[in-house]
């Protein structure tokens, strides 16, 4: 960091990961974090499945908790048909949750703070749920944009609104996650930079004064932990909602 300025966005810079091999195939530091998240998920499953006890231990209880949480979310939101999409929703939820959590650690990359990543995930969810809608209902799925019980003369106004709101789904889905993660990490970096600036400009008094931004960062850590879980949950439940719309059309 240059003296006298705060480089809050440098933490999002993409570099090559995994040494020279990664550099050759453009494997980035963001992909390192993704790989880490995937490995952690699989490891939790592997450890949790070791005992297969009737009364679960800690890791088994964790895996079962995650499993039942996402499964109930699918069944409650989509209905019984939701079980078909349960592995997909679980993969997305676990991947985003672990990505958010891994990104909270210093020196680890938060891949969910990249709009390219979140937009890709959101576009996948959008195209997949639209595909499910057309697969389930054929061309009758277009009726989804025609609200029921509305006088005919309102339709020219309402149908475009419905279509626009439908098309804006991937934007809101991706920007929500990206913005939350980026904002949290930027604030962290800014407050941490304040501590350096205070010490550099005010000497020993600044060092004492930097307790204030430090305290703010501690409070922010708790908030970011909440946001990490909440945003993964929001992404998963919205995925379920879009799939519900595609399956049930209302």
């Amino acid at each position: 960091m240059a003296a006298g300025s705060i480089d809050a966005l440098g933490q999002f810079k993409l570099t090559a990961g995994l040494g020279p091999i990664g550099r050759a195939v453009n494997f980035t530091n963001s992909n390192e974090a993704m790989l880490g998240a995937a490995i952690v998920i699989v490891a939790i499953f592997a450890i949790g499945l070791q005992a297969r006890a009737l009364v679960p231990g800690r890791m088994q209880a964790l895996v079962e908790l995650l499993y039942e949480f996402v499964r109930n979310m699918c069944v409650d939101t989509i209905g019984e048909e939701g079980l078909r999409y349960f592995p997909l929703v679980f993969t997305l939820f676990a991947f985003i949750l672990l990505g958010n959590l891994i990104g909270l650690f210093p020196y680890f990359f938060a891949f969910t703070s990249h709009i390219a990543v979140t937009l890709t995930l959101a576009m996948f969810v959008f195209l997949f749920s639209t595909g499910v809608g057309f697969y389930t209902h054929g061309f009758r799925f277009f009726k989804f944009f025609v609200p029921e019980g509305v006088p005919g003369w309102l339709l020219p106004l309402l149908v475009p609104i419905e279509i626009i709101s439908y098309l804006s789904r991937p934007v809101s889905l991706s920007v929500r996650l990206f913005a939350n993660m980026t904002a949290g990490h930027v604030m962290w970096e800014v407050f941490a930079g304040f501590m350096l600036l205070l010490t550099a400009s005010l000497g020993i008094y600044g060092a004492f004064a930097s307790v204030v931004p430090l305290g703010l960062n501690v409070a922010l850590a708790a908030l970011e932990l909440l946001v990490a879980g909440l945003q993964a949950y929001v992404f998963a439940i919205l995925t379920c909602l879009y799939l519900h719309d595609a399956v049930h059309m209302h």
């Binding site: 494997f27 995937a38 998920i41 499953f45 499945l49 079962e64 349960f86 890709t120």
Partner: peptide, 29 residues
């Protein structure tokens, strides 16, 4: 180029993760 390349690698990682979970992890649980 890394901005979009990370998405390609993400797709690879997610596909592998999806099949690992849907074929092994989740059914076992």
């Amino acid at each position: 180029p890394l901005t979009l390349d990370q998405v390609g690698w993400m797709a690879v990682i997610l596909v592998v993760l999806y099949f690992t979970l849907s074929r092994w992890g989740l059914p076992e649980i």
